[in-house]
Write a protein that binds this DNA or RNA. Structure first.
Length: 218
DNA sequence: ATCCCGAGGG
DNA sequence: CCCTCTGGAT
């Protein structure tokens, strides 16, 4: 199955623009409920003004908010980013830590964000279970769990660690483009012939029930 | 109107 | 577990 996804999306990758772990961390925080394209529209100016963790720690709130405003949730994101800068300076000498435990303790950094940074800035294999990954993993029959950590653990047992990061990208691409939450485009899905959720009865999951109710096409 | 690659807080 | 934070695309 991974083979099918590789064939489908050979060049899947992180679509956020960044050059350093700190930039990726900030971009990923900004990407919540926001397209990567919009994040990439604000980060050039943002990264020009704020280059180090100390820069974020000492940021003037109003200015930071205005720079990131169009990514949505700008007040809470600005809060997170300032707190992030402070925490990085206080606990990690201004550097971005490269392990999950330290990353997750940072303000505004949940497990999903932490895994994105590990996989894309540090080449540490990580399964990024966001809303897409979880939904597709359940439709594919890889897990029945809804808890992202359980999904992560169960899927980790199915694939070698070297594949985790790219698998995450491909799952997320497919989820965004084809295997939507509400009306999955099964009619144009190259995986439909293989997919347990295609044309199958209820699987006990909301999205699958919606699929069955609406029919696999359109 | 409704949805979207989350995280924190009550 | 549910709520909130927010803007932009469709």
């Amino acid at each position: 199955m991974n083979r099918e996804l590789v064939r489908l999306y050979p060049d899947a990758r992180c679509e956020l623009d960044f050059t350093t772990p700190l930039e990726l961390l900030v971009a990923t925080i900004l990407s919540a409920q926001c397209t990567d394209k919009r994040v990439n529209a604000v980060t050039p100016e943002l990264f020009r003004r704020y280059r180090t963790a100390a820069d974020y720690a000492g940021a003037e709130r109003e200015e930071l908010e205005s720079l990131i405003r169009s990514t949505g949730f700008f007040r809470s994101k600005a809060n997170s980013i300032i707190g992030l800068g402070q925490a990085l300076c206080e606990r990690h000498g201004g550097e971005v830590p490269s392990n999950l435990d330290d990353l997750v303790r940072l303000p505004g950094v949940g497990r999903k964000t932490a895994n994105v940074v590990l996989g894309n800035a540090f080449d540490v294999p990580g399964i990024t279970v966001d809303t897409h990954f979880g939904r597709l993993a359940r439709r594919f029959g890889w897990t029945e769990a809804t808890d992202p950590v359980k999904v992560e653990d169960e899927v980790a047992g199915l694939f070698p660690a070297k594949d985790w990061t790219m698998l995450s990208h491909r799952m997320i691409w497919h989820g965004r483009r084809i295997c939507h939450a509400r009306r999955p485009a099964c009619g144009v899905c190259a995986l439909a012939h293989w997919c347990p959720a295609y044309g199958a009865g209820p699987t006990g999951e909301d999205e699958a029930r919606t699929l069955v109710r609406n029919g696999p096409f359109s």
